[in-house]
Design a binder for these strands. Structure first.
Lengths: 123, 123
DNA sequence: TAACTGTACTAACACACTTAGTACAGTTAA
DNA sequence: TTAACTGTACTAAGTGTGTTAGTACAGTTA
């Protein structure tokens, strides 16, 4: 379900949070569905429950999850959070594209790259 | 010349390295030009010389700089490093675009975004 | 010679991350 | 009601990384 990379310098709790965020945004975990319990996920990933709890805290603070006391944590993807994420990604996109242009990448190459990826989704 | 963000969780030496890399790739520091000395840059940024040294080590390891004993460090941008950076950025681009598509961004919106940025460079 | 260059150390401190353990309130099903 | 689950909130300890401070050395340049 989630993959951890211990070589990565990023903290485990961030990797867990980012992985869950991606699963929620891609629909692999639909909004409203229950997330694995802190203890269950910590057991399956073989890490401390506190680390999972921290990932869930961060995920909830970002708006991708909510908690019902005694029941558990659930996935969420409200419109404003989607919009916020879009803006964040667009900003990163701009920076990358700008640097690629300095590296001599043409509009044609960029379009081709995006087109290729589109075809992978719609063969 | 370089901006540091102490709120950023990223280490200072990575911020310095990434900032210099960007200046080199964009041509703000042309290949062959001398980089500021370790001591001079550490003084102007008000940080420890060891931190700058670490940034230079990393930058040189990536291929964006070379050292001449006793003279100093100089910017570099060989073809293979450019190509490696292109691949790295394309990978990040793919991941961002994929997530944007899941967020409902259409090809038209993507093209428009790229087109806007192009017009900013060529008004 | 004097002032610069990068580099290589040791030592110490601060902070974030992670783990371990315990505890408590709310929910759910037997 | 009891038992097992849920998230949450602590304290404590260990570890590793980043940063700073200080000193030192070899090479270059004016």
């Amino acid at each position: 379900m989630l993959q951890l990379n211990y070589r990565d310098s990023r903290p485990i709790y961030e990797q867990v949070r980012d992985g869950l965020r991606r699963l929620i945004i891609t629909g692999a975990i639909p909004a409203g569905d229950k997330l694995p319990s802190v203890r269950a996920l910590s057991a399956s990933l073989a890490i401390n429950p506190n680390t999972i709890q921290r990932a869930y805290e961060s995920l909830e603070q970002e708006g991708y999850a909510y908690t019902v006391a005694g029941k558990g944590s659930f996935a969420a993807l409200p419109a404003d959070v989607r919009e916020e994420r879009r803006e964040e990604l667009f900003s990163k996109l701009d920076a990358i594209v700008q640097e690629l242009r300095f590296l001599g990448v043409t509009d044609g190459e960029l379009s081709a790259r995006l087109g290729d990826k589109k075809e992978e989704k719609e063969p």
